[in-house]
Amino acid sequence: MTDIKFVLLNEADNILVCCQAANYGEWVKLPNIELRLGSNIDIGHKVACNNIAKGQNVIRYGVSIGSATVDIIKGSHVHLHNMKSDYIPSHTRQSTVGE
């Protein structure tokens, strides 16, 4: 299930995980998935492989890892700016996200 640069960890997932840095505009092709990157993506980061509506769960490993805080378009970077924990807010050096 591995593209060179992205991996779908579970059939139920709505995100792919980046295994090798990729650039804005690149096409990602996996069985039944085709998307164009909306931004540069670094290793370890996530990209939406479906449209994810605000409030909908973000699924990785086949389980929820939080929920979308805005509508996320397929191909977008999924991170602190558009999803949050359903348990405890995350924090960066500058701010706390998802309170």
Partner: peptide, 15 residues
């Protein structure tokens, strides 16, 4: 959850 976790692509505690 440390800032470096987020820089490395992790977004939430449950992830």
């Amino acid at each position: 959850f440390a800032p470096g976790n987020a820089e490395g692509g992790l977004t939430t505690q449950e992830e």
